[in-house]
Simulated assay, not measured.
Amino acid sequence: MNVTLNNGIEMPALGFGVFQTPPEQTVASVVEALKVGYRLIDTAASYLNEREVGEGIRVSGVDRSEVFVETKLWISDYGYDEALHAFDKSAGKLGVEQIDLLLLHQPLTSDFEKTVGAYKALEKLLADGKVRAIGVSNFMPHVLANLLERTDVVPAVNQVEGHPYFSQRDVQAADDAHGILTQAWSPMGGITSYRGDSGRSTFNDPVIGDIALAHGKTPAQVMLRWHLQEGRSAIPKSVKPERIAANFDVFDFDLSAEELAQINALDTGVRSGPDPDAITLESFHRDIPEA
């Protein structure tokens, strides 16, 4: 199942994420994901596993032309020249000449000039054919509006926290208004579990559990199907082969309008990840190594 981005590029709707996957497990996880059928791999400079993602693609036996590679530049590399160099670092680690989708990982609202400079570098990379599509991550509607006023190319994707307990419908509405695809990180609400709040884990939600039982599917599969039917892209992650496979097995059933509404009604409006407006270089600086 592919989606067409606003610049005409086709991208798989369901991808494989490697956030918090240790480098020593990343190669095998990527190989397993490609074996199962994933063709979109999402990583980021700040995950420190781009090199292993590239290696996994190379040893998988799947031709590079069949794999859609998505990565993100970290705020420490914002600014025009810095972002151009950050592309070189990411492409070098991934072992590719062209990146399919390159995102700004966070808005740096405390120094928006650097954010704008970095995005203009992405526009340059797009014009030069070094990337096929560009976008943003964790951009809330007011920040997105600010970026659009200062730049020329509308982002193709906005990757944000998105799961049944925090669906950010206002973000998707703003994205939709500009033809931007919303892509969900933590799409099954795993962040609600590993933050230690097991009492509000999406995996234990009785509504999702009942819907899963009715379809003979797992709660995770129901949540991923929900994203796809609601017009979002999703990038689940796992290092366990059986879960990697299960998370891709979501194309043989449909949720009813009533079931979609039941899942939408679970939204608590409570963010589990960091507030994008609170991201600063002082608090979140991270040196991104050279290729």
Results as ranks from 00 to 15, higher is better:
Val160His: 02
Asn49Trp: 11
Val36Lys: 02
Glu70Val: 15
Gly61Tyr: 04
Ser256Met: 10
His215Lys: 15
Asp275Pro: 08
Val69Phe: 06
Ser167His: 13
Ser137Lys: 03
Glu70Ala: 15
Pro12Tyr: 12
Asp128Met: 01
Gln159Phe: 09
Tyr119Lys: 03
Tyr194His: 14
Glu259Gly: 03
Ile9Glu: 14
Pro274Arg: 01
Ser167Ala: 15
Met188Thr: 13
Ile57Cys: 10
Gly54Ala: 12
Val222Gly: 12
Gly231Ser: 08
Gly129Trp: 11
Leu148His: 08
Val31Trp: 04
Ile208Phe: 11
Asp210Tyr: 00
Lys120Glu: 13
Ile191Pro: 02
Pro289Asn: 04
Ala13Gln: 15
Asp287Val: 14
Ser137Asn: 07
Tyr119Arg: 01
Ser198Phe: 14
Val171Thr: 13
Arg195Asp: 13
Pro164Asn: 08
Thr151Pro: 05
Thr268Arg: 14
Thr4Cys: 04
Thr280Asp: 06
Ser283Thr: 13
Gln20Pro: 00
Ala91Tyr: 10
Lys237Asp: 10
His105Cys: 08
Val27Met: 04
Val154Gly: 00
Thr202Gln: 08
Tyr47Asp: 07
Gly273Ser: 14
Phe139Asp: 07
Asp275Asn: 15
Asp63Val: 06
Val27Leu: 07
Pro23Tyr: 12
Ala145Gly: 12
Gly209Pro: 11
Val59Asn: 04
Gln183Tyr: 01
Tyr119His: 06
Thr26Val: 08
Pro155Asp: 11
Ser167Trp: 14
Glu70Ile: 06
Gly61Trp: 10
Asp128Trp: 05
Glu24Arg: 09
Arg225Lys: 14
Gln262Lys: 15
Ala91Met: 05
Ala212Tyr: 12
Val3His: 10
Gly92Asp: 05
Gly216Trp: 12
Glu230Cys: 14
Ser193Thr: 15
Ala91Lys: 03
Pro236Val: 08
Asp81His: 11
Asn7Leu: 10
Thr192His: 11
Ala261Cys: 03
Val250His: 05
Ser90Ile: 03
Ser167Leu: 12
Lys35Gln: 14
Glu82Leu: 05
Ala184Lys: 04
Thr26Met: 02
Glu32Arg: 12
Thr268Asp: 09
Leu224Lys: 00
Asn138Ile: 10
Arg51Asn: 02
Thr71Met: 03
Val171Glu: 03
Lys114Tyr: 00
Glu259Trp: 06
Thr218Ile: 09
Gly135Lys: 04
Val67Met: 03
Ile57Trp: 03
Thr268Trp: 12
Arg232Cys: 00
Ala257Thr: 12
Ala86Asp: 01
Ile288Ser: 04
Gly135Arg: 02
His227Met: 04
Gln172His: 12
